[in-house]
Amino acid sequence: MADSPIVGYADALFSVAEAEGNLSAVEDELFGFAQTFQANEELRSTLADASVPVARRLQLIEDLLDGKASATTASLISMVVSAGRANDLPAIVDAFVDRSAGSRNKAVATVRSAIDLTGEQRQRLTEAIKTSTGKEVEVKVVIDPSVLGGAITEIGDDIIDGSVRRRLNQLRESFR
């Protein structure tokens, strides 16, 4: 899934974040930015466009993250974009998150939901996943309105789909 340059970048990001001592915050911020990046077509095409001067792209990142993320996060994203790897950013962030969670002997559970989960819900879901799969996980929530309701959890290759979207799809299948 992740080829060697992506893993290399993820390792580099992890090393920097760890050295800066704010791994957890950087991890959350990078994850959030990656979600925004994937969801926003304009942002994605601008940052990946080689014809746009690097300085301007970096300025755009700085404007976006100003006051919302740490300087470390902004620097790391700028580094990836200026290296011309903007298109690989989601994969690099995924690898980074896996690497980070792995450093704490945990797996990453990506939860897609129409609304954000409360702290209490996250805690319960973490426990539930541990009970269900036997894995220590860190829950990362991705807001995805297409889920409609409920949630979809991805842990590695395992998927636990309890979304309203799935129910509707099942209903659609039953009509055929």
Binding site: A114, I115, T118, A128, S132, G149, G150, A151
Partner: peptide
């Protein structure tokens, strides 16, 4: 699906995950 309904769905989902293999 208002906020309450969404929250209930999430709770139900968590219960479902808990009970799925537990």
């Amino acid at each position: 699906l208002d906020a309450d309904a969404q929250a209930r769905l999430i709770d139900a989902y968590i219960d479902e995950v808990t009970g799925s293999n537990g």
